[in-house]
Design a protein around this nucleic acid. Structure first.
Lengths: 150, 150
DNA sequence: TTAATTGTTCAAGTTAACTTGAGGTCAAGC
DNA sequence: GCTTGACCTCAAGTTAACTTGAACAATTAA
């Protein structure tokens, strides 16, 4: 093998992540680096995949905590195999599916509002209480308006 | 009319937003309050709808800046009519559609990776360069891995 | 061998979207 | 007319996800 282990700079160019981000990811437990005698980080090739997964999951909207959660399903002792990754990807896919569903239902409600003019009706709820937890924020937010003066 | 104008507390209970959030939204220009002689805020009924839109758009993932952008299309002088809102909602729907499309393509690529095992091939790009700008972060991030030891 | 490059730590700064707290005012009910 | 609850401002704190900078060590290329 040309490069049994990689430096942080090499990982950086391969993933597109800034070295500072990679260090930060190590700090929060998303990757683990081996250290040389002198204290420099060395990464395994498989960490490229790991970090790429972080990027993908994050672009999808997961927090680093959630991503760490998912990655915790990978074996710690050995290099993850293809089937390890397939398992994780399947879980990830399920989350993507859920999000697509959520957005489709948002779109439907939006269509309802646009089409039937319920924007001006008490009965229009762009946020219905049965919706799954919102990404951010807390407390009940449900009514898309009220009977306006207009 | 029972309440020609509403206090911040009333707006708060109607929207589910904390008063501090409403004040903050005023500060960043998402709503505008009238002031009483004594300096207290008074809102129009139509602001409930406005703030509800903020909540909806935010739950979808738009930043407050983007939301302000969209809301800037509403008339400033008069109370927005139903057709004003319909126009905005249509634009919003287009954004939702785009996001659904983006996620579907992510899902497809994910399926490819899961199905064909390309997770272990150089050719697998979970992030392809032609993708539209990611929500967060900068710099190129494109490779989902590399030929691993495994 | 020496200079340039790349790496290290640690503390502090950044942005978004708010919340919290202090200290004070206003409005409503009894 | 006074107490209570709602409201005000302004400064500072909070969380996520990093980046930046200072001061220094290790590696590599000429």
């Amino acid at each position: 093998m040309a490069h049994p282990v990689l430096t942080i700079g090499q990982i950086s160019t391969r993933t597109g992540l800034a070295p500072s981000a990679i260090r930060f990811y190590e700090e929060v437990g998303l990757v683990r680096a081996i250290r040389t005698e002198a204290g420099q980080r060395r990464f395994r090739r498989s960490d490229i995949r790991r970090l790429s997964f972080v990027i993908a999951a994050q672009g999808f909207g997961l927090t680093l905590g959630e991503i760490r959660e998912m990655l915790s399903k990978l074996p710690d002792e050995r290099t993850p195999t293809k089937s390890d990754w397939t398992r994780i990807s399947r879980r990830f896919r399920a989350r993507v599916d859920d999000e697509i569903t959520r957005l489709q239902s948002l779109r439907d409600r939006l269509d309802g509002c646009i089409g039937c003019g319920c924007l001006s009706l008490k009965s229009c709820r762009l946020y219905n209480p049965d919706d799954t937890a919102a990404t951010r924020g807390s407390g009940p937010r449900y009514v898309m308006g009220d009977n306006p003066e207009t």
